[in-house]
C-alpha cells in the first residue's frame, strides 16, 4: 500500500527559543516514527490541530540525533499557534520536501551566503554544513540584512561564526538608532564590498523575493554567472508534494523543483509580475 503523503507524524515540542520579538525556533522530537533526515534547504509541513498546516523550512543542524529545529515568524494563524506551544505539546510533521542548497556543488569553490530577514533560517543548515566541512571550501562569506538590530536571528551563533578567523560575516540593518554600531543600509550594498571572485564563487541567496531580486542584480553586476546563483522561492503551498497545484512558478512546482532553485532555471520569469 502506497503511503498517504498527507499524513503527518506526531512530534513533541522539546523547546521553544524566542529568537526575536516575533520569531521563535521550535525544537521537536518524534513521538514514534521520525521523518527522514532533512538536508540543508529542505522544508517540512507543520500541522497544528484545529488551525492548519504551513510549509516551514528546517533551520536546524544536519547533525545525527539533533532535534528537528524550525524557525517561524508569527505572521499567520499556523505559525502564531506553533510559536506559542509549550514543551510537551505535540504537533504534526511531514516531509522533508524540496531541493537542497548546493553544498555539494560548491565543493572546492568560494561560498557566498546572502540572507535577508528570516531568510537566514533556511540558510543556517547550509552555513553549518559548510563550516563543519570548512576544508572543502575556499573563502566563505555571509552577508545578512535585517530590518532592525532587534530582528537579527541567531545572535549567539553569528557571534561564534564571527570568531572563526576564516569566515567573513557582515550584518547590516535597514534602520537603527545610534546605539547600533553595525552597518546600516540594505544587504545589496554589502555585495560590492564583500570582494568576491565571481568566477569561483557559489552564491546562495534567501530572503523576501524583492530582496533576492536586488541581490541577484547586484551579483550579476559583480560579474557572477546565473549558474552560480541559487535562490529559495516561496509560493502558496497546501500539500508540499506536487499534488495541490498551488506553488507553480512557471513550469516548476516550488515544492518539487524548489524551494532552492538555480537562478538560470528561473531567470526568464524571475522579474515577471504576478507569475
Amino acid at each position: 500500500m502506497t503511503v498517504n503523503p498527507y499524513l503527518p507524524l506526531p512530534y513533541r515540542v522539546i523547546a521553544v527559543r524566542q529568537d526575536t520579538p516575533d520569531t521563535a525556533t521550535v525544537e521537536l522530537r518524534p513521538v514514534g516514527a521520525a521523518i527522514p533526515e532533512p538536508a540543508p534547504g529542505q522544508f517540512t509541513m507543520l500541522y497544528m490541530l484545529g488551525v492548519g498546516e504551513a510549509p516551514i523550512s528546517v533551520s536546524g543542524a544536519p547533525i545525527e540525533g539533533a532535534p528537528l529545529a524550525q524557525t517561524l515568524r508569527g505572521v499567520g494563524a499556523v505559525s502564531k499557534a506553533i510559536i506559542r506551544l509549550q514543551p510537551g505539546e505535540e504537533l504534526g510533521v511531514r516531509g522533508p520536501y524540496g531541493t537542497i542548497w548546493p553544498v555539494a556543488e560548491a565543493d572546492g569553490h568560494d561560498v557566498l551566503f546572502i540572507a535577508g530577514g528570516l531568510g537566514l533560517a533556511p540558510l543556517r543548515p547550509a552555513v553549518r554544513h559548510v563550516l563543519a566541512n570548512r576544508e572543502r571550501y575556499g573563502r566563505v562569506s555571509l552577508l545578512y540584512g535585517t530590518r532592525s538590530p532587534q530582528d537579527i536571528l541567531y545572535r549567539d551563533e553569528l557571534a561564534m561564526w564571527r570568531r572563526m578567523l576564516d569566515v567573513q560575516i557582515e550584518v547590516t540593518v535597514d534602520r537603527a538608532h545610534r546605539s547600533w554600531h553595525g552597518a546600516v543600509g540594505v544587504v545589496t550594498e554589502l555585495i560590492p564590498r564583500a570582494g568576491v571572485d565571481p568566477s569561483r564563487t557559489i552564491a546562495m541567496v534567501c530572503g523576501p523575493e524583492i530582496m533576492m531580486r536586488f541581490s541577484v542584480q547586484a551579483l550579476q553586476a559583480a560579474g557572477m554567472p546565473c549558474e552560480h546563483i541559487y535562490v529559495s522561492m516561496e509560493r502558496s503551498m497546501k500539500c508540499g508534494v506536487g499534488l495541490c497545484g498551488r506553488c507553480q512558478f512557471g513550469p516548476d512546482f516550488v515544492c518539487k523543483q524548489g524551494a532552492v532553485m538555480r537562478y538560470d532555471r528561473i531567470a526568464h520569469i524571475f522579474t515577471v509580475r504576478e507569475i
Binding site: F43, P55, I56, S57, L72, R73, V75, G76, S79, G98, G116, G117, L118, G119, A121, P122, G145, T146, R147, D151, D174, R175, G185, V186, T188, E189, C206, G207, P208, E209, I210, M211, F214, S232, M233, E234, R235, M237, V254, A259
Partner: peptide
C-alpha cells in the same frame, strides 16, 4: 538602496 529600505521588505515575509 533608499527605495529598498523604504519597501521594508523584511517586514512580513516568511520564506518557506
Amino acid at each position: 538602496a533608499a527605495h529598498l529600505q523604504l519597501l521594508d521588505v523584511y517586514g512580513r515575509s516568511d520564506p518557506a
